[in-house]
Write a protein that binds this DNA or RNA. Structure first.
Lengths: 237, 237
DNA sequence: ATTAATTAACGTAAAAAATACATTTATTAT
DNA sequence: ATAATAAATGTATTTTTTACGTTAATTAAT
């Protein structure tokens, strides 16, 4: 640190340049068997009609997470989304208006929990991940980075927790993993593997929406999951 | 994003609060078989004598990485250190002076490449990782986070590249991994595993410093390493 | 010149994990 | 009663990981 002036004095700060800080949200959802992303369609100029991520400036008296939660609640009506920091986007010229650093944050959510009318009323759209339009600024890069992170995260955390409804079937869970990794998996091996973690509780109910036989519903054993994460388990499938 | 004013116009920015942005560097080194961290001992009040990480404010016309490189070169004389972003530390009250977000960045370096006199002249010290003093602000947390990240990183990248001298022996590489993971490994299995990656080139020279028999020196095959990283290999040992 | 000391180098067998692969089962609609 | 549909299940093979003891090369001391 510079030591021309005493750190932690007002004067010391005045020697430096404050910068605008924004946060952009990369929100993954899973619905109807496909991975989706929450995007925002601009309704005013400039760039009217262009798509972007949902974002906001960070205020002096709020943390970055709080800023993201604020804008997300505004647009989707959902509170308590667990946001995780991705990385900063801090290139000097990334924003044509003014020097602005954006902190990317991502989350996985259950689309079914949302108030979809509210989402659409605010101009936000759940877009199938495979058909995403081009996004403004460096938002495409943010999305690419988030997918990479999501794949890595899935290796040490059972992400189904966050993306699936409370009760889900094993074929649904497999769909999710296939969507994230973009590849087919063997259903026998998949089932064997996920059950071996011992964090799934089989319920006495079936979901009959996708087959005549119906598939048993499961839920996560949250306590057991916490123990396993603490022990450093690898949840890779 | 707020749409009271057109984004990317000067006025739009003026509605928001700029914030001070700093970067703090968590620099790991490996020397004499032990993992070390570069820390800075404050020579002026307040907190004279306290230890901190090396850091700097980010200027309007420099990227966060450039800011870190600038301060690192100043203190250690080393240019071109490859810094990687850890995460942001953005709690509203983390800094008692003023709202300031710090972006933690970490690097692994070869201590032998450094100008140690320069390091000490600037009041920096290579501290054995296991004997670290308490650090100011939230720097202790940054260090803890960086070690976690380093361990994770080691799973998909051969970090020896960055921490060891150009020529190194397999026992030295094992020491490094034992230091990072804080556990003993079996030398036969370790050797087998690291050689199986196919990124080590055996040289016709021995290092006789640590044994009478001497150990063969190796170097990394950088091209092959790049290929393997691209293919998503797991370098876990 | 011989011996003692020191760390490097090496291979194999057993256990565990990952993979490949096909049939039967429960249910609904006709 | 039958056809249609997706769910559920097991086993053999291959690959990976783990556990473990002996010999080899060199230097320093005698």
């Amino acid at each position: 640190m510079s030591n021309k002036t005493s750190p932690w004095s007002k004067d010391w700060y005045k020697e430096h340049d404050p910068i605008y800080i924004a946060t952009d949200c990369i929100i993954f959802g899973f619905d109807e068997g496909i991975l989706k992303l929450l995007v925002f369609k601009r309704r005013v100029e400039p760039q009217k009609g262009a798509y972007s991520l949902i974002g906001s400036f960070v205020k002096l008296n709020e943390s970055v997470t709080d800023a993201a939660k604020r804008v997300l609640e505004e647009i989707t009506g959902l509170k308590n989304v667990f946001m995780e920091e991705l990385r900063t986007y801090n290139e000097v010229m990334r924003d044509p208006g003014y020097r602005c650093i954006s902190i990317g944050q991502y989350a996985l959510i259950r689309i079914s929990d949302y108030d979809n009318e509210l989402v659409e009323k605010h101009g936000a759209i759940w877009y199938p991940f495979n058909e995403l339009p081009e996004l403004v600024l460096d938002h495409d890069i943010m999305v690419k980075d988030a997918l990479t992170r999501l794949r890595r995260k899935a290796r040490y955390q059972p992400i189904g927790f966050e993306l699936l409804p409370e009760k889900f079937t094993i074929p649904q869970l497999q769909n999710l993993y296939e969507a994230i990794y973009q590849k087919q998996m063997d259903s026998r091996n998949f089932r064997k593997k996920v059950l071996s973690f011992g964090v799934l509780i089989k319920l006495n109910e079936k979901d009959k929406l996708s087959s005549k036989k119906g598939a048993f519903l499961y839920k996560f054993d949250y306590d057991k999951y916490q123990q396993l994460v603490a022990s450093g388990i690898n949840f890779e499938v």
